[in-house]
Design a protein around this nucleic acid. Structure first.
Lengths: 144, 144
DNA sequence: CCCGGAATATTAGCCAGGCTAAGTTAGTTG
DNA sequence: CAACTAACTTAGCCTGGCTAATATTCCGGG
C-alpha cells in the first residue's frame, strides 16, 4: 500500500473518521468538555498568556477569551497580570482546576488503557510503532 | 511500552490531540464543513432515512434534521418519502451534491497523500500496518 | 515629551452544530 | 377505534468557532 499514496490516504481518511466518531461518543456528557480539558492541560506547568493559549489550540484570541471566561466562572482557572507588561493577561490553574484536570485525565487514560487492553500484544506493538509516525504527520501544515 | 497500558494510553492520548488539531487546521474555511461532508458521504450509495443517518453519525435526530435542512437549502440533497411508510423521510444526493462530494473528497485525499508522501517508505509501512488496529480500537464501546 | 502605530485583550454579533422537550403525523395493536 | 408507539420536525438553549470593532498599553521617532 505504501507505493500507492492515494489508496493509503483513503484508508487513513476512513480511520480518522472512525477516531472522530469514537471521540465524540466517548466525550458526550463528561463533566468537562474536551476543549476545556485541553486548555486546562496547557496550564499544567504554570501560567500562560492568552495569545500563547490561542495559538497552541489553533484558535483566534476572542475564542480563547470566551473559553477562559467560562473556566474562570467555573473556578477552574484564575486570571493574573504580567508585572512587566500591563497589556498581557496571564491564566493559571486554581487548586480545583488542577484537581479536575487530573481526575478527567485519569478517567480518559483509564478508558483508553481499557481499549488497548483488548488488543493482542502484536497489535499493541504495531500501534506503538506507529504513534511517532502519526505525531509527525502534517507538522509542516502548521507553518503554511 | 506495550506492557504498560497506562503509559501507552498517555501516548495515544497525545497523538489523538495532535490529530484533532490537524483536522481543525485543515478543515477551516472549506466549502463544505466536515459534518456536511460526512453526511454527504453516507448518501453515496443511495437514499437513507433520517434515523439511519442520525445513528451512523452518533447524533440525535433533531441535530440531523437541521443538518439535512441546510444541505437541502444548499441544493446538495433532496428529501423523499418511503411509499411503504408515510412517517419516514428519505434523503438522497442531488447531482450537485454528488459533484461536491467528489470534489471535496479529491481535495482531502490529495492533501493527505501529500502529507504521506513526506514520510519515508519505512514510516509508511509502519503506518499502514497500524491502520487496521486503529480501526479496531473502541469498537466495543459503541454497544455499551 | 508626546504622538502615531503596533501589540494584547475584550466585547459584540454572527453562524454551525450539539442537546432536550414538546408537538405532529402515521402506523400498530388490544 | 382508542391508545400506544414510531419517525420526524420545531423551538429553545448551550458550546465553540469566526470577524469587526473597541479599549488599553507599549514603543520609537521627531
Amino acid at each position: 500500500m505504501r507505493d500507492d499514496p492515494t489508496q493509503m490516504a483513503e484508508q487513513v481518511s476512513k480511520v480518522l473518521r472512525h477516531l472522530v466518531l469514537l471521540l465524540r461518543r466517548s466525550s458526550a456528557g463528561q463533566p468537562v468538555t474536551t476543549q476545556q480539558y485541553a486548555v486546562l492541560g496547557s496550564l499544567e506547568h504554570g501560567p500562560r498568556r492568552m495569545t500563547e493559549l490561542a495559538e497552541e489550540h489553533a484558535v483566534q484570541l476572542p475564542t480563547m477569551t470566551v473559553q477562559i471566561n467560562r473556566l474562570e466562572y467555573a473556578g477552574l482557572v484564575a486570571r493574573g497580570s504580567d508585572p512587566a507588561d500591563a497589556r498581557v493577561r496571564t491564566v493559571e490553574l486554581t487548586g480545583e482546576g488542577r484537581d479536575r484536570l487530573h481526575a478527567v485525565r485519569r478517567a480518559r487514560i483509564a478508558r483508553l488503557a481499557h481499549d488497548l487492553a483488548a488488543l493482542s500484544d502484536d497489535e499493541r506493538d504495531v500501534l506503538a510503532a506507529a504513534l511517532p509516525v502519526l505525531a509527525k504527520l502534517g507538522i509542516d501544515r502548521t507553518t503554511q
